[in-house]
């Protein structure tokens, strides 16, 4: 097995297995630890300038990446008109810069505000560092290898699809520049860190808030309950 196979076949599958298995295990065994760990109570002003740009920027870009994977043909057709391609790229660039601004604010906040430093774990540092790497390499690619939304559908989408269909073709990405590879590997690292870090809060996005009734009343027992075991049942009941 070549190094390329290891990095682009073994690593993604391992990361994915970690993501699924550990997330489920953590949810079921230690749900108390599943939290977004907000630090807004301790510091709010700088969080405003960090959290909002970062979250919206990264979420929208992630959705863009996902669209490229799901509907590559539509993206290609859209990009066939140069003006539309330009619009798409400019939007992506703006969102990326917005997210970069946000994460820089978040990192400086973590370092400079004493109260926030007090609630920062090594895992937080790892997550922030990884996200910074992801955003910087993404922007680098957007600038250094222009029109990524145009060539990306024919370079990355077949590779990711080969992974998803369990017939991995690592050779598809073997000859790519190192910066592109870094961007992809950083995502695998993101998947691997996901279940061990506060990133798990992403899957707790409470969409049912939109539809649930305002109030919630919980009964201890489902209905009025009187327990009357028969003599037989009482004697044979196993503990």
């Amino acid at each position: 097995m070549s190094g390329n196979d290891l990095l682009f076949v073994v690593v993604p599958y391992a990361a994915f297995v970690l993501l699924v298995v550990v997330s489920i295990a953590r949810w079921r065994l230690h749900e108390f630890t599943v939290s977004s760990l907000s630090s807004q109570l301790l510091e709010s002003k700088r969080l405003f300038w960090g959290s909002i740009p970062f979250h919206w920027g990264v979420s929208l870009i992630l959705i863009g990446h996902l669209l490229a994977l799901l509907i590559p043909r539509s993206i290609e057709i859209w990009n066939a008109v140069p003006l539309q391609l330009f619009l798409l790229e400019a939007t992506g660039m703006a969102l990326g810069l917005w997210a970069l601004f946000g994460i820089v604010m978040l990192i400086t906040r973590r370092v400079q505000v004493r109260r926030i430093a007090a609630v920062t774990s090594p895992m937080d540092a790892a997550v922030l560092g990884l996200l910074l790497l992801q955003i910087v390499t993404g922007l680098w690619i957007a600038i250094g290898y222009r029109w990524g939304s145009f060539w990306g559908t024919s370079v990355f989408v077949p590779y990711i699809r080969s992974l998803l269909t369990l017939s991995p073709q690592p050779e598809l990405v073997a000859s790519l520049p190192i910066i592109l590879k870094t961007h992809v590997l950083a995502f695998f690292a993101f998947m691997a860190l996901f279940p061990f870090s506060r990133l798990v809060h992403i899957i707790t996005l409470p969409l049912n808030y939109l539809t649930r009734p305002w109030q919630k009343v919980v009964r201890n027992a489902p209905e009025p309950y009187v327990y009357q075991p028969s003599a037989d049942e009482f004697l044979t009941k196993k503990s």
């Binding site: 808030y209 919630k216 919980v218």
Partner: peptide
């Protein structure tokens, strides 16, 4: 509460 984590006990 977006997560529906808070509730009122009926009893």
């Amino acid at each position: 509460c977006p997560a529906a984590a808070i509730y009122k006990r009926a009893e």
